[in-house]
């Protein structure tokens, strides 16, 4: 039983980082479906930089920077060139999906994975786990209690009002999205150098989308989104447990648990569990 909960926490951690980063991005008024891309580029960067520098902290710092930059491609396309945020998000996702194996092949010879790190060069899981539990509360304070947060919310819900108050919504968005990208990157770091010891191709495995689902289910609020991530982590842990459980054996359809996060999100979007209202500027160009 305790095993299942421990495993749930481990599985939830990257989701929490991704959802919290997504929270900052979406709240600034830009639809952000490219959390997956940021997880991939940051996971790759963390594994590679740590491998060559032998310092997981340097690897993490580099991953944060690359994650912020990956997200900034998206915010640049949307804010400056007025690209459709969904099209831009898909493009950035595909870019990350393609670029990471190419770089892996160039540096490590095989496109499937980077070289494994020794245990001593891995990042502490507990540290990241602890951080992921603090972050939602920190973001709640930053966004709902400070002047910076007020501007962020205004950029998402009333950019014109913000502009006529003498503040550029574009600048607010660039800042929030870069910060959001860095936060998502912590999830990537967790995946490749804390939870595992190397980057493997497509290792984000849809977590960026599940995090987005958690964000929607949490109605774009950090603490409910955080709790949803924990719940999704639990369903994932149960699914893994049942796969190998002699009790239920092969008769239990684990797919039923695997689809749970997506199913729940669908229910929310259809409006069964209270309507989820996105930031008003999302969906408008």
């Amino acid at each position: 039983m305790i095993d299942i909960f421990a495993s749930a926490l481990r599985l939830a951690t990257p989701l929490i980082f991704a959802a919290m980063g997504g929270f900052l991005c979406e709240r600034s008024g830009v639809a952000t479906i490219c959390l997956e891309a940021v997880l991939l580029t940051s996971a790759w960067t963390a594994a590679s930089v740590t491998y060559f520098s032998h310092s997981p902290f340097l690897g993490t710092a580099a991953a944060l920077w690359v994650g912020a930059m990956t997200m900034s491609i998206h915010s640049f396309l949307v804010t400056k060139t007025k690209a459709d945020p969904i099209v831009s998000g898909v493009a950035v996702n595909l870019l990350a999906l393609g670029v990471t194996p190419i770089l892996t092949k160039l540096l490590f010879g095989s496109p499937t994975n980077t070289a494994a790190l020794p245990l001593s060069e891995r990042m502490s899981s507990e540290l990241l786990l602890g951080l992921s539990f603090l972050l939602p509360f920190l973001l709640h304070f930053m966004v709902y209690k400070t002047g910076w947060g007020l501007r962020l919310l205004a950029a998402g819900d009333g950019p014109q009002a913000l502009e006529t108050s003498g503040v550029s919504p574009a600048k607010v968005r660039y800042g929030a999205m870069a910060l959001g990208g860095a936060v998502v990157s912590l999830g990537g770091v967790y995946l490749s150098v804390a939870h595992a010891s190397q980057f493997t191709r497509e290792m984000a495995a849809g977590r960026g989308f599940i995090a987005l689902a958690a964000l929607i289910f949490g109605k774009w609020r950090p603490i409910p989104a955080f709790l949803t991530c924990l719940f999704f982590g639990l369903t994932d842990a149960l699914q893994i447990h049942f796969q190998s459980s002699p009790l239920l054996g092969t008769t239990f359809p684990v797919q039923a648990l695997q689809i749970l996060p997506y199913l729940i999100t669908l229910f929310v979007l259809v409006g069964f569990i209270g309507r989820a209202k996105p930031p008003l500027a999302i969906g408008k160009s």
Binding site: F141, K145, T146, G147, W148, L150, R151, L153, A154, D157, G158, Q160, A161, L162, E163, T164, S165, G166, V167, L280
Partner: peptide, 24 residues
């Protein structure tokens, strides 16, 4: 009107004039 509908009246009024650092 140039107001943010989801924010409260006082938040709308100070928008753009508020200190960005620290608690409001």
């Amino acid at each position: 009107f140039m107001l943010v509908p989801t924010l409260t009246v006082w938040e709308n009024i100070i928008l753009g004039q508020e200190p960005t650092l620290g608690r409001l």
